[in-house]
Amino acid sequence: MAGWLLRRIGQIIPTLLILSFGIFALQQLMPGDPALILAGEDRGDPVVLAQIRAELMLDRPMWEQYLHWLSRVLVGDFGFSWRIREPVGALILDKLPVTAQLATMSFIIGVVIGVPAGVMSAVWKDKPADWGINAIALFGISMPNFWLGIMMILLFSVQLGWLPPSGYVPLWEDPVQSLATTIMPAFVLGTGVASVLMRHTRAAMLGALTQDYVRTARAKGVAERTVIARHALRNALVPVVTLGTIEFGRLLAGAVLTEQIFSIPGFGKLVVDAVFNRDYPVVQGVVLATALIFVALSLLADILYMLINPRLRNA
């Protein structure tokens, strides 16, 4: 297990290096001179421009800039926001709990709806219930989540007046109000997760239900409920757990638009605002942080897969 883990981490390192270079290289695509953007009103002053270029190492060759940037990133220094004049790392850490709350709530909604729906759909394969669940899942996958968000605001905030259309209250300040402001965006994001998990659970359950141990259990006279819950589902959940971990990472991306619609001051709003303010260090920092979280979650998925699959645990 330890050896496997080390090998797996060894595979991640080149990926992360390439990724870091790609994210660094993004700024080469940028139209215009960053020094001109930063100088603002002093853009006509060559002394100021030279000073900014020297500070940002823009006058050095690209590989030198990259190595400098990487050495800073490795010690947790993601640079300085051009607009807000704060360290990018601090900005990200500040916004991350908001998105984490949203992602966790969405994930719970996704699992609570998606997994039972997948089990029902597999058990009632090719019956009307299966068709119905599949149709809803297809709707969930095809629905652009920002449109679903707008439609929910239209229904629950404008028409019915049940929920606030936007805003955010931290969980520790007022839990009830916090849930009221995040339940709609969490549902919007959760439906996508539920649809994906439903499809995977269904496929895994259909596979498990044809296994010999299920037939044996049935032949022994084990109640059908027990066969489904204890024998089939437990085994079917192995791939679903790992996929669920990856889905959790994808919630971070989904949060970008959802946070925008519901005016939730999280990670997604940070990157969108940064894009509009041409605050490139923040954009780079957010992309890098997302990728790191995503890679960490994939590693976690692999470890979970090892832990819950007894055949691999001792291998």
Binding site: T15, L16, L26, G254, V256, V271, V286, V287, T290, V295
Partner: peptide
């Protein structure tokens, strides 16, 4: 393969937003 892995490590929409942001 490592380059593809690296690109797949960034969620699709975030990568597209970042590229579009830098391209204009």
């Amino acid at each position: 393969s490592r380059i593809a892995d690296a690109m797949l490590a960034v969620p699709f929409l975030i990568l597209a937003i970042a590229l579009a942001a830098f391209l204009g």
